[in-house]
Structures are given as structure tokens and as C-alpha cells.
Amino acid sequence: MFTGIVELIGTVQEYNEFDESSSGGQGVSVVIKDAAPILKDCHIGDSIAINGICLTVTEFDVEAGTFKVGISLETIKRTNVSSWKPNSKVNLERAVSQDVRFGGHYVQGHVDTVASIVGIEPEGNAVNYSFQLNQTNDDKKYMNYIVEKGFICIDGTSLTVVSVDDNNAIFSISMIKHTQENVIMPLKGLGDLVNIEVDLTGKIIEKQILMAVENQIEKEDSLLSKMITKIVDKRIQKYLK
């Protein structure tokens, strides 16, 4: 679990598409450098969020300030990992411990999809960013969980949604000066992709409601079933008249 409060900006040192080593998992692996401050209490198997993606440390060197992670094909499909190159900057956050103050919001590190930056507008010392989800049915559904003044995690950064355009799958956030100085967003431009994790709370509520409704419909003597039957009977009677 993470908070969406970025601890450090790291740098991609290596991006290996075919890593045959045991720590590379015989697949895609990434080595991150400039990470010494967050490796002092690191152990093999620990979770570190890189641009909001929860990844497992398979190798690390405190003195060199580097660590390595393996990346699955599912993660590559869902995220902007394929755009990472040597010297790319990335947001880093360790998984929370018992003594961490919860300053952001509940973040799993399970990226739902990506969005492209479609607007960058300075406003005082803040910057307003607009993002558009991919215009596919699967991606657009995530707009159901993006609400004005709600939480959203963008490239591992906990932010507040300030506006939503459901029809065009566009939403925006406002980033204060302090955040700009401690995350990678200002290094990106129009058209660049960012990782999106919507607020888990919305998903949980939706599933609970759907399950409750389905259970009510399946029971003939439930209040909902009786209500539906009553409405249908009224409509039929009205039609027969």
C-alpha cells in the first residue's frame, strides 16, 4: 500500500527487454539509480512504486543507489513502462510502514490505465493539467470513478480532481508549486502518457451496490422484486386499458 506522496525522483539506468538473469525473471527488467535515500531499509522482495506502479525489488545496491525490478507483460500493457528509457526520470515511493503519516490517499500501486496530457495552463504559481483517457470502451469506463474533488493517482502522485468532462473522457488537476518541484510531471509535455490509478473506494461501492441489487432481484419475495413486479403490473394494466 502507498500514499501517493512521492519520496524521491529517481532515474532509469537500464531498461532490459530480455533479462535472462534470475533477478530479471527472464523478461523485462528495469534498473533505477539515484535512489540511495530510499534504500537504507530496503530488503529483497520489498515493494517500491515507480511512477505509481507497485513493483518488487529483486536486487539492490545501497552504496550505488540502485535497485532492480522485474515487470510483467500485464503491467506493460496497462502502463507507460514501454516509454521509459535510460535517463528517464521517475517518481519513487516505498510501501507504507506503521510509522508513516498518511498524507495522500489509499493507493494500491495497481495502475488501471494511461492517459495523455491534453492541456497545460499556468495559473499563478500553480499549473493546471488536463488529461484524456484512451477513447476505447474499456478505458472510458474509468471515468465512472473520477469525480470532481475526488482523489486520483497520476504517475504515483496523489492529486485532487478539479473538473471532469465525462463525454470526452477528460479530467483536470491543479498542481501547487511544492508538488511541481518534487514530482516528474513538469518534465512532461502535451501528448505524453501518464499512469492512472482511480480511487479504489468507487470500485468497492459500485461492486457492493451491484451485488446487492442482483441478490434482491434473484429473491422473488425481496422488496426490490416486489417493487419491480408492482411497476410492471401497473404498466401492463395501463397498456391493456
Rank of each mutant, 00 (worst) to 15 (best):
M1L: 11
F2H: 03
T3Q: 07
I5D: 04
E7M: 13
L8F: 08
G10H: 01
T11W: 00
V12S: 06
E14I: 05
E14Y: 01
F18N: 15
D19P: 03
D19G: 01
S21K: 06
S22N: 15
S23A: 11
S23I: 12
G25W: 05
Q26M: 10
Q26N: 15
G27I: 04
G27W: 02
V28K: 06
S29W: 03
S29Y: 03
V30Q: 00
V30K: 00
V31D: 04
K33T: 09
K33Y: 06
D34L: 03
D34G: 00
D34M: 04
A36T: 09
I38G: 05
I38S: 06
I38Q: 02
I38M: 11
L39K: 02
K40Y: 15
C42I: 08
I44E: 14
G45W: 06
S47D: 07
A49R: 00
A49K: 00
A49F: 01
I53W: 04
E59P: 12
E59R: 14
D61W: 13
A64H: 04
A64Y: 02
G65K: 05
F67T: 01
K68L: 01
V69P: 00
G70K: 03
S72D: 09
K77Q: 14
R78E: 12
T79I: 03
T79K: 01
N80Q: 12
W84R: 08
W84D: 00
S88M: 04
K89G: 04
V90P: 01
L92N: 00
R94I: 04
S97F: 14
D99E: 14
V100A: 09
R101D: 12
R101Y: 12
F102R: 15
G104D: 06
H105Y: 13
V107G: 00
V107T: 05
G109H: 05
V111D: 03
D112L: 06
T113Q: 02
S116L: 11
V118M: 08
I120N: 08
N125V: 09
Y129N: 02
Y129S: 01
Q132M: 12
Q132D: 09
L133H: 01
N134T: 11
Q135S: 08
Q135Y: 09
D139C: 10
K140A: 14
K140N: 13
K140Q: 15
K141I: 12
K141P: 11
Y142T: 02
Y142S: 04
M143I: 07
N144R: 12
I146H: 01
E148C: 12
I152A: 02
I152H: 00
I154D: 03
G156N: 02
T157H: 10
L159P: 00
T160P: 05
V161Y: 02
S163D: 14
S163W: 11
D165I: 12
N167Q: 15
N168F: 08
A169K: 01
I170K: 10
I184S: 04
I184Y: 05
K188M: 07
K188R: 12
G189C: 07
G191F: 07
G191A: 02
D192G: 07
D199W: 01
T201S: 13
T201H: 14
K203P: 06
I204S: 09
I205G: 08
Q208I: 12
I209E: 13
I209G: 10
L210C: 14
M211K: 15
E214N: 13
Q216M: 08
I217W: 08
E220V: 07
E220H: 14
L224N: 06
S225V: 09
K226Q: 15
I228H: 10
I228W: 09
I228E: 10
T229D: 15
D233M: 08
K238M: 12
Y239W: 15
